[in-house]
Design a protein around this nucleic acid. Sequence first.
DNA 1: AGGTCGTCCTGTAGGC
DNA 2: TGCCTACAGGACGACC
Length: 293
Amino acid sequence: MPELPEVETVRRGLQPAMEGATIVRAETRRKDLRFPFQTDFVARLEGQTVTGLGRRAKYLLADLASGDVLLMHLGMSGSFRVIDAAGATAPGDCHHPRNEDRAHDHVSFTMSSGASVIFNDPRRFGYMKVIARTVLNDEPLLKGLGPEPLGNEFDAAMLARACRDKKTSLKAALLDQRVVAGLGNIYVCEALFRAHLSPRRLAATLASKTGGPADRAGRLVEAIHDVLNQAIKAGGSSLRDHRQTTGELGYFQHSFRVYDREGEKCRTPTCRGTVKRFTQNGRSTFWCPVCQK
DNA sequence: AGGTCGTCCTGTAGGC
DNA sequence: TGCCTACAGGACGACC
């Protein structure tokens, strides 16, 4: 499910319920998600105040007063919902269909406010881990991550440099979290379309003289910025699983130009092409062969 | 060493 | 209706 815009949407939804509040009770309803829970997982959470809720790439990071950090990844199908002290998931919405399916509620946090934060993940590719902040920089899960696509260090020169010696496709390079951290299949397809670049293009060909229509890296960085910012504004994309923490859907899927649009007309105004789909590194790529070069 | 592929897991959609 | 297959927003680890 979740790429950077969805994770950021979740972070903003969890923030009012968690930041400044204390976890009075933490429950795991099975022994593992993607990995077994640490044996001291619950003990290191209960009684801890959440001093801040951040995000790195597709990871959520809850800072605890103890000096630990709770690292959370949503995998493919993870979602959080917040239930307030009165038992409602959102003002006026306590009967969302999603809330009736509790079979995959795997973790719950009861906060000092009386609110509950519940993690649901049918496929269980998600995971949580408590790490001491002092060794966060050595954490293998975070160590190899590339720059944040919306951060200052991510620019055309940096992206071109990261792709320069790659022998793989531009699509695969952008999905590689070591190159840039936070993009997934949807937003890579959408960004390549918006930059008019072919997903098949060799990553190394991204570099070119800056300025003018051949500034491929510049166009791509701008396209990535635009699509991520617009998606965050829309609360992410809801295809199947993604919900905001209130249970509401994101609505960026209505703005897709290629993803999930196989056989439909290209949305570039002057283009008469049709959106095609093919498999690249085991994942579906959607693109317009007429206007993406 | 970088790149590719299979794999983890459940749910759903589509074909017959 | 029911059974089967294919596929899904991620990313690790084994393999070449």
